[in-house]
Design a binder for these strands. Sequence first.
DNA 1: GCGGTAATACTCGGATAAGTCTTGTCCGAGTCCTTATGG
DNA 2: CCATAAGGACTCGGACAAGACTTATCCGAGTATTACCGC
Lengths: 168, 168
Amino acid sequence: MKVNKGVEWAAHACALLAVLPEGWTLSAEALAAYHDVPPAYMAKQMQALSSAGLVVSVRGAAGGYRLARPARDISLKDVFLAVEGAAPSFRCTEVRQNGPCGAAKAQCRKPCGIAASFYAAETAFRDSLAGVTIMDVVASASAASDLGKAAKIATWIQSNASRPGTER
Amino acid sequence: MKVNKGVEWAAHACALLAVLPEGWTLSAEALAAYHDVPPAYMAKQMQALSSAGLVVSVRGAAGGYRLARPARDISLKDVFLAVEGAAPSFRCTEVRQNGPCGAAKAQCRKPCGIAASFYAAETAFRDSLAGVTIMDVVASASAASDLGKAAKIATWIQSNASRPGTER
DNA sequence: GCGGTAATACTCGGATAAGTCTTGTCCGAGTCCTTATGG
DNA sequence: CCATAAGGACTCGGACAAGACTTATCCGAGTATTACCGC
């Protein structure tokens, strides 16, 4: 059981978008450069976030991505589901219906104990992620960094972000 | 994020082993036949359970597998870890150290907020599974089945299980 | 009849191939900005 | 000098390959059974 790498990158991207000035955007390429990951693949994750409605994309020159709603209203669960998909991780193949002692299909309307337990575990997993917002992530990151780094990031944003509708 | 199919099969196999009479064993082939899954692959999962110490294997003619300890002392978490491995599902690549604003390695002794949240979520996942034992699974399964099926299973066991040290 | 022994059949265990999903990449569609042009 | 329109450059979006892991399989190592032989 492994979570896609894209989840990590998408989460970090959201954290960076969260500290952008209002109305500014960052292109997928800039986000990839900031995190030093393959640009095309980062773009793919941003697409997933976009189609899930977590970020809005601005096309054309000086375009890019920005958060669709406040960082406190986006949880890691949202990011996880956007990138990873909503399909359950445990895929019950209904083996109880197989073999010489297989149960009748009519008796299998409820999931078996094993499947139910794994579904419950996954719900616990998602609930745990739902309790952490992008704002929380940003807060913990900034708490661990010093002023010098904050200034560095601000400078980088000034150089690489763009504000559609105006010249840089 | 997907859990291996083998986890499901291993769990069902444990449930079947749990209802065996004391001292009896079931071969990997018999377990595969009961659940109608590929014999060789089922054998692989049983190996994993064996090396994890959840079941004990008896080699030679009339050999097979039996639970290593009472069903109430084996949880789905144990089965999951045995088959899936104990490696964390979220693989932090420390992207915070990358790029133009990368943090120094010395400042990254603690996991970042994103990684910590995913680790916590996985702990919640495993804790949820730890609360369900094989005994619970058997109980829920037998509660959902009728007497006819129970007799069918008992007959099948009589025909396919073996008791080492004695003739069948 | 009984004990020992060798052959045998059956089991697990690890090493070895296909299939599928993740990972990584590319090029086309669409949009905004820039710039040239005419009034 | 200003409005307009065409051109260009930059962006996202989905379609397209390589790699890794899951899934599936095979054959060799080992052990209890079993039959046989000698006593």
